[in-house]
Simulated scan of single mutants.
Amino acid sequence: MIDTGLAGRVVLVTGGNGGIGAAIVRAFAAQGARVAAHYLDAPGPDGAEPPAGVRWEHVTPGARAAEDLVAGLGGAEAGVVAVGADLAVPDAAPALFDAVEARLGRVAVLVNNAAHCEAPDTIDELTADSLGRHYRVNAIAPALLTAELARRVPDRRGAAEPGCVVNVSTDAARAFPRQIGYGTSKAALEAFTRGAALDLAAAGIRVNAVAPGPVQTGWMTEEVLDHARTLVPMGRVGEPADIADAVVFLASHQARWITGQVLQVAGGHAL
């Protein structure tokens, strides 16, 4: 049996209350980690109109979903908690870390999974505001959270594995037509992954990313699913657990000499 070395470690998963994020929370909890599921307490789709330009399938499901997820995993007694924060706020990182560490202890693993996505997002409909919203959550917040992690681990630099970061990108980051703000902000996240990996290597902090292909998190209709399957060489779309398992691997002891990498988890899509 493989020992991932994650038992007892504190993991912060942003956007951890739904879709891929919730699968990541479950996967770390299954390894015996102490997990904080971050959420944005946004309105949900039930009987409400989405904000202008925002698709409901990309709005985080809020506090209730986080609380339900945590309760299903045993709650605080099992070392799993929900913590809210708006990552679009520039000073969110220190407060989020303080809240997690007050309940679980020092964060060892940061998973930057939370994302912002809008429609329309085409080149002829770009605005400074929409670009700003994408970049604040998809690129700036992960950078600030990573910097916060690094500031809090100097006393563990002698440890074998003082900390690590896993960023969640997209396998379309290289070129994402009709999703310009989202795609370019994820490309920036991948560039940050490589730069931060080099900057933090001497401290023993690893920084990697996963790049998911098409994943069914509930938003794909049967028509969309049928089309997506034709684009994936392995013949199926992804499930959240496919991405979660890759994230756990990159955070594990087995990936101890891997840093600065973007791992495509996409069944061959976009190769």
Rank of each mutant, 00 (worst) to 15 (best):
G218Q: 02
D91N: 14
V265I: 10
L126Y: 04
R236K: 11
A42C: 11
L149F: 05
G213H: 14
D41A: 14
G5K: 08
A99C: 08
V215K: 07
M1S: 13
A119T: 12
L104E: 09
D155Q: 06
V153S: 08
R157P: 00
I2L: 15
A203W: 02
W56L: 03
A88T: 07
R26W: 00
T127L: 11
A173M: 14
V168G: 02
L131W: 07
G72I: 07
E49R: 15
A33W: 00
P214G: 00
P154E: 03
A197P: 04
L144Q: 10
D171K: 06
A63H: 10
A188P: 12
V25F: 02
G183Q: 13
I24D: 00
R136F: 05
C117N: 14
L198Q: 14
T4Q: 08
A115I: 05
W257R: 11
L144I: 02
A99W: 01
R178Q: 14
F192Y: 13
A201H: 12
F192N: 09
R194N: 05
I140W: 12
A143Q: 13
G105E: 05
A92C: 13
G72C: 06
Q31C: 13
G267S: 12
G32D: 01
I2Q: 12
V89K: 12
L189S: 06
D41C: 11
V237I: 13
V165D: 05
A175R: 15
A33F: 01
L144V: 04
G8C: 04
V35N: 04
P43R: 13
E77Y: 11
C164F: 02
G44Q: 02
P162A: 13
G5E: 09
G218L: 04
A27H: 02
G16S: 03
A114K: 09
D3S: 06
C164M: 05
A114T: 01
T184A: 15
G62P: 06
H58E: 02
